[in-house]
Amino acid sequence: MHPSPYYAPQGGHPPQTQLTADRAVFTEAYALIPKGVMRDIVTSYLPFWEKTRLWVLARPLSGFAETFSQYIMEVQPEGGSHKPELDPRAEGVLFIVEGELTLTLEDEPHLMQPGGYAFIPPGSRWQVRNESAAPVRFHWIRKAYAFVDGLEVPAAFVTNEQTVTPIEMLGTEGRWATTRFVDPADVRHDMHVNIVTFQPGGVIPFDETHVMEHGLYVLEGKAVYHLNQQWVEVEAGDFMWLRAFCPQACYAGGPGPFRYLLYKDVNRHAALTL
């Protein structure tokens, strides 16, 4: 297996001589969790998971972002879970950033490597296990599926981003492209988890201001983001959590591509009651 191009946290603990101040920020419109704060002391554990710890990047939070949770899972050799999801309403996406994971989905095994992507509908039968000799690290994005009477739940699938052709944004000459794992017009899906790629110097040339909330994990590279009239630098390993209608734009800094895993909620009516 080739080395992973994606950043994955390793934990550890900084020395007493390190400066305390970092780039972490939490505002009424967005949060930035830089890679330097993903240490051993902030990991957690889950029921029915063996030899596993996780960093919780996002969770539904009243008055802030409310539709999803996102974890970085770290599973040691021979670890995993035969009962990973306890909520029958939850759909999920797994994205591998380092190592190998065996996903058994509806009794069919899938060996997932870096770039591996799985969509798991609510109520699915699935298990995961690390059958390799090294840790595996992966993102797990969860959302309570918004069922619609008369609309089928989308089917499970497993793929790898290397097999999916990115779609260039119109008028950008390839400087901005999105790897889409589902058809945006397929309204059975109520969330999209895509990969966005900017070549060095590529930009979002206006402040996007929209109803979808976002989780953005930087897989590679660096950029400067404009969030709610504030400029913040981000790099591989950082996570941004953007509330609905948070203005957002960016410049990709180079020298290589700037790439991030992007969550957004889509294709449903706005709830009229809280």
Rank of each mutant, 00 (worst) to 15 (best):
Y251F: 15
Q10F: 06
R137T: 02
Q230C: 09
R125K: 10
A249C: 03
R89A: 13
Y145A: 05
Y6M: 07
E208W: 12
A236E: 11
Q162I: 07
A58D: 10
P47L: 07
G123V: 05
E233S: 14
R89M: 12
V128A: 14
A244F: 10
V203A: 11
E220T: 09
V42Y: 00
D265G: 15
P257E: 13
H192L: 14
N228G: 11
A249F: 01
E106D: 14
T163W: 02
V148L: 04
T165P: 00
F198Y: 15
H2Y: 02
E152Y: 00
R125D: 06
D107E: 15
P166V: 03
Y30G: 04
N194R: 02
A244S: 15
D22T: 07
Y6W: 14
V37E: 03
L219H: 09
K264V: 04
W49E: 06
V56Q: 14
A133M: 01
N130F: 03
M240K: 09
K222M: 09
R259G: 07
Y263I: 12
Y263M: 11
E91V: 00
P114S: 01
P114T: 08
V136Q: 05
A252E: 06
L32M: 09
Q199K: 13
P84T: 09
R39S: 04
V158S: 05
L151N: 01
V93A: 11
D186E: 04
P88W: 06
L262G: 15
A236I: 08
F138E: 00
L170P: 03
R39Y: 00
F198L: 14
H189D: 04
R137W: 09
H189T: 00
R243N: 15
R142W: 00
L227H: 06
P47V: 07
E161N: 09
L61Y: 09
T159S: 06
Y71D: 15
Y6I: 04
E106S: 14
H2F: 02
M112F: 08
P114H: 03
L32S: 01
V232T: 08
E168H: 04
V158Y: 02
L170Q: 10
M212R: 12
K143N: 10
G256D: 13
P166W: 05
L170V: 06
G79F: 09
T17W: 03
I41A: 09
V196T: 15
L272K: 03
G215C: 11
S69G: 13
E85S: 10
H139A: 11
K83P: 00
F181P: 06
V37W: 00
Y260E: 13
Y45F: 12
P255I: 07
A223F: 03
P184G: 08
L19S: 05
L170S: 09
L151Y: 05
N130Y: 08
E106A: 12
G202I: 13
E66R: 12
